[in-house]
Amino acid sequence: MRTVLVHLSLALCLASPAEAVSRRDSRTLAQAAYVLRHALPITSTRLKVLSADRALLSGGDDGAVIVTRINHCSYSIMSNRVGGYRINFSRLYGTFEREGTAQDGRIVLAGSSEAACALPLDGADRCATTVTLNRGALQHEAALLASVTYLLDQGCRASAEPAERP
């Protein structure tokens, strides 16, 4: 009986850190999906995290929208309707500017080269040093900036190794 308890305790101790990492990775992917959705004209709002590296957005007129983690701080979103977009959060400076009005505006994040890349359905990628997030209404601004901050802190600075690819 004592041996069974020792083995069970050891198994629980070994499983817990992996589950915690998986939950953190899933949360990081969900935050990235939220930011990326606002970087493209994506209407889908239902998010289903498939793994720590892949999520699906549905519920809009966009068809299949896939969010993918490329490495520890770079994520992409692809839509059959509008192409795709990639943001490398390690290339962002963390500062932002507001544009527009309280009812309809944008957040522009500054970065270094290739911080943001448009991924057209045909042709070459077009990369830039800024990320523009369409926040819609003013109340979305705080949530968007919180997601960006989380990704900078957890997605890039806390992890030095690229995500393992399936």
Rank of each mutant, 00 (worst) to 15 (best):
residue 2 R to M: 09
residue 6 V to I: 14
residue 7 H to N: 03
residue 7 H to F: 09
residue 8 L to F: 10
residue 14 L to R: 07
residue 18 A to T: 15
residue 20 A to N: 01
residue 21 V to A: 09
residue 25 D to S: 14
residue 27 R to V: 10
residue 29 L to Q: 11
residue 30 A to G: 15
residue 32 A to V: 04
residue 33 A to K: 02
residue 35 V to E: 08
residue 36 L to I: 05
residue 38 H to Y: 04
residue 44 S to R: 04
residue 45 T to Q: 13
residue 46 R to T: 08
residue 47 L to W: 08
residue 48 K to P: 01
residue 53 D to R: 09
residue 57 L to N: 08
residue 59 G to F: 08
residue 60 G to Y: 01
residue 60 G to L: 01
residue 61 D to C: 02
residue 65 V to S: 04
residue 69 R to M: 04
residue 69 R to P: 03
residue 71 N to Q: 01
residue 72 H to W: 02
residue 73 C to T: 09
residue 73 C to L: 06
residue 74 S to L: 00
residue 82 V to T: 06
residue 84 G to V: 10
residue 86 R to Y: 02
residue 87 I to G: 01
residue 87 I to P: 00
residue 88 N to A: 10
residue 91 R to N: 14
residue 93 Y to V: 00
residue 93 Y to C: 00
residue 96 F to Q: 13
residue 101 T to R: 15
residue 101 T to E: 13
residue 102 A to I: 05
residue 103 Q to L: 15
residue 106 R to T: 11
residue 106 R to D: 10
residue 106 R to K: 14
residue 109 L to K: 11
residue 114 E to C: 07
residue 119 L to E: 10
residue 124 A to I: 03
residue 127 C to T: 07
residue 128 A to M: 02
residue 134 N to C: 13
residue 138 L to E: 11
residue 139 Q to I: 10
residue 140 H to F: 14
residue 140 H to V: 06
residue 144 L to Y: 10
residue 145 L to W: 06
residue 146 A to F: 07
residue 147 S to R: 05
residue 147 S to K: 06
residue 151 L to S: 11
residue 160 A to T: 10
residue 160 A to L: 13
residue 161 E to R: 08
